[in-house]
Nucleic acid binder design. Structure first.
Length: 424
RNA sequence: GGAGAGAUGGCCGAGUGGUCUAAGGCGCACGCCUGGAGAGCGUGUUACCGCCUAAAGCGGUACGAGGGUUCGAAUCCCUCUCUCUCCGCCA
């Protein structure tokens, strides 16, 4: 959520920046500025009346203690009108405040100045690519056929147990999941991220803190009886560790990594794009999160991009890094880099990671601040996160790209984790 | 699931209707003292909103959350949330 300070006095700037995200903010911004002015006037009036009431009360107490009951009772009469007026004004103030909140919450985060204009993923800009493309003999099988052939994943059984989008991993398929998770966490740990293992369900406040609520509730599984939500990503519980916190500058950088299953309702399209592991309701992901000083958060973003890149390099997968255009960015992000791996059989790029700087957008909702060393004032911190990495599509590419006549080769870095170097 | 107790500032903890922003202690910051450190002494130490160009200053709000009673609520009443203890059940 943007701060009122960001909007007040910068309305043109805000409106123009949001155009990059194809968001027409002019109407809302004007409403906000108007309402904010009104709200402040109401508050000034209310405060002054409350001040009057307080001094009346003090005097009444004083008179009672002096035994001047008649005078006190006379003063009491004065407070009746005052109280009624204050009550009305307070009602107005509350109304204005919640109206204002409702408006501000609708504004997406401002995109960073480097964000390219564009409406769709086609307009994302490739930063660089790496890894080597596989040279496959004969016809490459898609991962869902490989998964069936080698009995790694049973989509039908997942269907039977739960429904579509909930695969059952079996044998070496299951072991491969664990191997990847452990590999990623170990790598992130060596890069200075502390491992945490958070709750997989969160309350409403947490959902709001990272921006899933309100608006995007349809994307999360909701447990109505307890009003809790299944996490769509570890970002939610991990970032919410810092809700309502005041950090010191010496605490920076805060670096956490977490493995969690992720649950997404998202009723996507059907057909080829969602076959096999391409889109699931439940999947595994290792996340990295950083809390940083605003002055250096973009260096941190770069550092996180390199961390994710190193994972893909070690797995020896062909990948590319995309600078997302305004239209393809998430609501809360100021700058996002997507990582895609090439799937040899499907002949397309699959997104396996998204690394973003949210600047103070989440911090404002979370009330995550730090004390500035020089000014001694409280300042909103910057939050960043990225997948390092999400498993399903990575596994898809891994299976497809490494298939041979003898079986599927496992990347060397995983051998210690899997205990086998080939699936056959 | 049953019974009971509780929630006060960064932490501990006092406070059962008025001068309570809230005693006392710890911690922290600064100063004095010291060769240096410690002890000791002194001073300071919540956040949010509003007024003010800003600072200073002033006003308002907040004692788990929300509502109520009252001229006045940390204190009384109602609802909710959470924590702890005991019993039961249990991975």
């Amino acid at each position: 959520m943007l701060t009122l300070n960001q909007i007040r006095g910068n309305s043109d700037f805000v409106i123009n920046r949001l155009k990059v995200k194809n968001f027409n903010a002019s109407k809302i911004v004007l409403q906000i500025i108007d309402l904010d002015k009104k709200r402040r006037q109401i508050q000034a009036d209310t405060n002054s009346l409350e001040n009057d009431l307080n001094s009346f009360s003090k005097n009444i107490g004083l008179l009672f203690r002096q035994g001047k009951t008649d005078e006190a009772n006379k003063l009491k009469e004065n407070t009746i009108v005052l109280k009624k007026k204050i009550k009305e004004l307070n009602q107005q103030l509350n109304d204005s405040n919640s109206l204002l909140d409702n408006l501000v919450v609708q504004l997406p985060n401002l995109p960073h100045e480097s964000v390219p204009k564009g409406k769709s993923p086609e307009e994302n800009i490739k930063i660089r690519e790496g890894g080597t493309f596989p040279e496959l003999k004969g016809k490459a099988l898609p991962h869902w056929e490989l998964a069936a052939k080698y009995k790694l994943i049973d989509f039908e059984l997942g269907n039977k147990i739960t429904g579509s989008g909930f695969p059952l991993y079996i044998g070496k398929g299951a072991k491969l999941q664990r191997a990847l998770i452990n590999f990623f966490i170990d790598e992130n740990q060596s890069a200075g991220y502390e491992e945490v293992s958070p709750p997989l369900v969160v309350n409403e406040d947490s959902g709001f803190g990272t921006g899933q609520l309100p608006d995007k509730e349809g994307q999360m599984y909701h447990i109505a009886l307890d009003n809790l939500y299944l996490i769509p990503t570890a970002e939610v519980p991990v970032t919410n560790i810092f809700r309502n916190m005041i950090l010191e500058e010496k605490d920076f950088p805060v670096k956490k990594t977490a493995y969690t299953p992720c649950f997404r309702r998202e009723a996507g399209s059907y057909g080829k794009d969602v076959r096999g592991l391409n889109r699931l309701h439940q999947f595994d992901k290792v996340e990295i999160v950083q809390i940083q000083h605003p002055e250096v958060s973009y260096n941190t973003l770069e550092e996180m991009v390199l961390q994710v890149e190193s994972l893909l390099q070690k797995l020896n997968l062909p990948y590319r890094i995309m600078h997302l255009c305004g239209g393809d960015m998430s609501f809360a992000s100021a700058l996002t880099f997507d990582f895609e791996v090439y799937s040899a059989a499907q002949k397309k790029w699959l997104e396996v990671s998204s690394v973003s700087n949210f600047e103070s957008f989440q911090a404002n909702r979370l009330k995550l601040r730090f004390r500035d060393k020089n000014s001694k004032k409280l300042v909103l911190a910057h939050t960043l996160n990225g997948s390092a990495l999400a498993l399903p599509r990575l596994v898809a590419a891994l299976l497809e790209n490494n298939q041979t006549d003898e079986g599927i080769r496992i990347p060397e870095v995983l051998h210690d984790y899997t205990g086998f170097n080939q699936i056959s």
